[in-house]
Amino acid sequence: MPHAPALLVIDMQNALAAISHRTTETVAVIAELRERAKAAGVPVVTIQHQGVELEPGTEGWQIVPELRPSADEVIVHKTSADSFLDTDLDKTLKALGVTAVVVTGFATEICVDTTARQALSHQYDVVLVADGHTTSERPDTGDFAPPERSIAHHNAIFRQIDFPGRRVRVVPAAEMDFTAG
């Protein structure tokens, strides 16, 4: 099957960016990937969460200005950590002929992780952009791993995932080649 990627931009919304770790850097990485994807003719799919504190139409629900989709880009609205659950994401990707998803966005251990794993179950290869996902800012105390450790942990886990018939890679944005198989 030919390599046909799509770039997924998950939950890069104003209210979530406000609590994100390394927001500016992550937004810049994703914005640059969007431009490269578009230049290569690769579809960009923006995924937008709605729920408590993310009510449709509110400022917090809006996609951050640097990543706002253009009129020709697909937006998928979701209500859970799984971007495939009760959405048209799978149908949209199949209609576009996509065989691999390039995963970016917020939050590393919730929506990014869940969507990437579900993509495997939906028969897509997965590329997790190592520096293209982030999580919430939080203190180094408590039960949650600090943001840098959580991001590194998930990158390491995805490097180890063995999923029959699927290819899983973790790639820094600078090394992302939208044309490579």
Score class of each variant (00 low, 15 high):
Q50P: 08
S136K: 05
S136A: 14
L85Q: 10
D90E: 14
E59C: 07
V9Q: 11
L85Y: 10
T46P: 07
K91L: 14
L7F: 01
F106T: 00
E53S: 15
A28M: 01
V44W: 00
T46G: 07
F106A: 00
D177H: 03
E148C: 03
L16Q: 01
Q160W: 09
V101P: 07
L54V: 13
H49E: 13
D125P: 08
K78T: 13
Y124P: 02
G41D: 10
E137M: 03
G97W: 03
V126L: 01
S136T: 09
H133F: 02
T134G: 13
E148H: 09
F106L: 00
V112P: 06
K94V: 03
H122L: 10
S80D: 06
W61F: 15
E137Q: 02
T134D: 10
D82K: 09
R159T: 13
D113L: 14
A107F: 15
F178A: 08
A119G: 11
I75Y: 07
H77Q: 09
A17V: 12
V42A: 09
V112L: 11
L89G: 15
E175D: 12
P147H: 04
D113C: 10
P65G: 01
S80E: 06
I47V: 15
A156C: 03
I161P: 04
P172G: 04
V112S: 05
A18D: 14
T87P: 05
V74G: 14
T179M: 02
D131Q: 13
R36C: 10
R138D: 08
A152L: 07
F178R: 02
P139I: 09
V112K: 03
L16C: 00
V127H: 03
I161K: 03
S80Y: 05
E32I: 10
I47W: 00
G60I: 08
V52T: 15
A4S: 08
P69A: 13
D162L: 15
